[in-house]
Structures are given as structure tokens and as C-alpha cells.
């Protein structure tokens, strides 16, 4: 790491989207942090449970509908912050889209022997890539909602940038903890 980087003049906002399914209850939350992971905005949904009739009538599209329309679109309407992109866990890669017109990217840590990648950004599929974080020998596996490589590279560069000031995936754990605790309160209530 180059020591004592000169300060720039703008701070980044990092968006996180998390969908949590506990038992049959679906919850979602959006957290926006500054570039060291301090929360700036947090919105979440109360748990939603699909009835037996919902399951029958929605069939195989129920999960997608819950993830994308019921939870994510609802949260999008509430968000006031304006992060460049939204990060979500890799498990969410089947339900990627845009949040408030911002691209989502599904991320997970990835182990790779040194030298296996030709560059800091390697596409492995049309919508997947592996990116190496700067001077860390840490890799991230990314899944995109868009096949556009230019946008993918822009997202990857953004991730590399914010990885210089924070642990990219750590805030997702905080969201899960918050939702889980809230769900526990609901059960006790």
C-alpha cells in the first residue's frame, strides 16, 4: 500500500442490499455506508410470509417475486441516499437487478493461487468475473446483473477502490444481525 495517500475531495457511499429468509419469513434491508463502513441510511422491511394460496398461485416465480418486487422494490422507494452501486451477497445472484437505478453486484470472497489470473479483472462468464483487490492477494467473485463488460469493469474498479478503505463484505453481516435480532423480537412478541 502506498503510504500516506493524499486525501481526495469526495467520499463514496456504498450501498448494500440483503435479503434474509428465516423459516418462511422474508425480510430485506438496504444499508448505505460511508467509505469506512459507518451507516448513513438503513431501511428494512417487516417480515413477509407467503400464504399457502400464494405458493400455489405464484408457483415457481414466488421466490423471484418476493425478492425483487415485494422486498427490493419496496425498499427502493424509501432510499434517499445515492450510492454508486449496491453490493449483495453472492447467494442473491439469481435475483440481481437495479436498486434505485443503480446496478447490483453479488460478491463473495474467493480463493485463488497467486498468478492464476492474468489481470486484476477476469471475466469467467458473461455475467461473472473475478477481481483482485489491490495489493492484498484477496480475490472477489462477482456476479452482475448486466452483461455489459464496460459496466462490469466500472463496478470492479469501484469495488477495488472502496476495498482500500473498508472490508467490503463486513457490513452485510451487520445487516443480517440486525434483521435476525428484529425477527427474534418478533417471535418473542
Amino acid at each position: 500500500m502506498p503510504a500516506q495517500d493524499k486525501p481526495g475531495n469526495s467520499g463514496k457511499q456504498v450501498g448494500y442490499f440483503c435479503h434474509l429468509k428465516l423459516d418462511e419469513r422474508h425480510m430485506g434491508a438496504i444499508l448505505v455506508t460511508n467509505e469506512i463502513g459507518v451507516p448513513l441510511e438503513f431501511k428494512y422491511t417487516e417480515p413477509v410470509t407467503a400464504t399457502k394460496l400464494h405458493k400455489i398461485l405464484y408457483g415457481s416465480v414466488l421466490e423471484k417475486h418476493l425478492h425483487e418486487t415485494v422486498i427490493r422494490d419496496r425498499l427502493c422507494r424509501e432510499i434517499r441516499s445515492d450510492p454508486d452501486f449496491f453490493i449483495t451477497s453472492y447467494d442473491e445472484k439469481e435475483f440481481l437487478g437495479s436498486v434505485s437505478n443503480r446496478e447490483m453486484v453479488a460478491v463473495q470472497k474467493y480463493s485463488l493461487p497467486p498468478g492464476d489470473l492474468s489481470g486484476p479483472f477476469s471475466r469467467i462468464r458473461e455475467r461473472e468475473a473475478i477481481v483482485e483487490l489491490e495489493d492484498e492477494a484477496v480475490f472477489l467473485r462477482l456476479a452482475f446483473s448486466t452483461p455489459n463488460e464496460a459496466i462490469q469493469q466500472k463496478i470492479a474498479a469501484w469495488l477495488q477502490e472502496i476495498a482500500r478503505t473498508m472490508d467490503i463484505l463486513e457490513p452485510l453481516n451487520r445487516i443480517v444481525s440486525a434483521l435476525t435480532s428484529m425477527c427474534g423480537e418478533g417471535k418473542r412478541g
Partner: peptide, 17 residues
């Protein structure tokens, strides 16, 4: 009954986060 909808919550405050 067919409208699955989610309400945004207010039990988790930003201070808690």
C-alpha cells in the same frame, strides 16, 4: 390476499445500526 406486500419497519433505528 393475492397482494404480497412488505411494510418498511421502524423497529430498528439507525442509532441501533
Amino acid at each position: 390476499d393475492m397482494n404480497i406486500s412488505a411494510r418498511t419497519g421502524n423497529r430498528i433505528l439507525i442509532s441501533k445500526i
